[in-house]
């Protein structure tokens, strides 16, 4: 554990809690992509099956359980409790275009051919692109609520901080995992456009709207 990873994890946690808070407080999931949330739930489920097979630390296990619970909770709020507020007309990205390539790639580039390892790899590849339906939705509606922008910023920062963590781990403990590194870089690049808008607009008190 180093400062970059801890900040990354906290940023990730903050993002997930911010989203739940927004939906609960406004009693609406307008502007949130249910497809991205579904993809994240698939990601956590595929990756954290190792809760049953390997133990790293109490910290890791607790975080995994929190991420899983929060993601299923978000789906419950979006597709059941506040379903009428879900803006499905603007949430039209085809997620099979993300799931199928991620699945195929996880059979091609994987460390070890075991079911658990392929599921883990699939979750890494899928996570890298899971935000695309949400970014697509923002580009279609041309705007995002401020709290949604904070959510996206925290979620994007998490993987960027993980990249710093991997650089640090490479120098301090010779740790090198090309699968997570390449996927993490792709994931962070996808947010770059949004980061620019966030810094130039949201941080100056303006609403995030596209020209």
């Amino acid at each position: 554990m180093n400062i970059f990873r801890l900040c990354g994890d906290l940023s990730h946690l903050l993002a997930i809690l911010l989203l739940l808070f927004k939906i609960w407080k406004t009693r609406s999931c307008a502007g949130i992509s249910g497809k991205t949330q579904l993809l994240f739930t698939i990601v956590y489920t595929a990756r954290y099956l190792d809760l049953f097979t390997s133990f790293v630390s109490v910290y890791n296990s607790v975080m995994k359980i929190v991420f899983l619970t929060a993601s299923y909770g978000t789906l419950y709020l979006m597709f059941y409790k506040f379903k009428p507020t879900y803006d499905h007309n603007h949430d039209s990205f085809r997620i099979l275009y993300l799931i199928v390539p991620a699945l195929v790639l996880s059979f091609i580039i994987v460390h070890v051919y075991t079911v658990m390892e392929i599921l883990w790899t699939f979750s890494i590849y899928l996570e890298a692109v899971a935000i695309m339906p949400q970014l697509f939705m923002v580009s279609r509606t041309g705007e995002a609520e401020t709290i949604t922008s904070h959510y996206l910023f925290a979620l994007g920062s998490y993987r960027a901080l993980y990249i710093l963590n991997w650089i640090y781990r490479y120098y301090t403990e010779d740790f090198l995992d090309w699968i997570t590194i390449m996927a993490g870089i792709v994931q962070t690049i996808l947010y770059c456009d949004f980061f620019y808008l966030y810094i130039t607009k949201v941080l100056k008190g303006k609403r995030l709207s596209l020209p």
């Binding site: 790293v56 390892e117 883990w120």
Partner: peptide, 10 residues
């Protein structure tokens, strides 16, 4: 033997 990889990150 199949190597088990311990993924220690989240």
């Amino acid at each position: 033997p199949v190597t088990e990889i311990d993924h220690d990150e989240l």
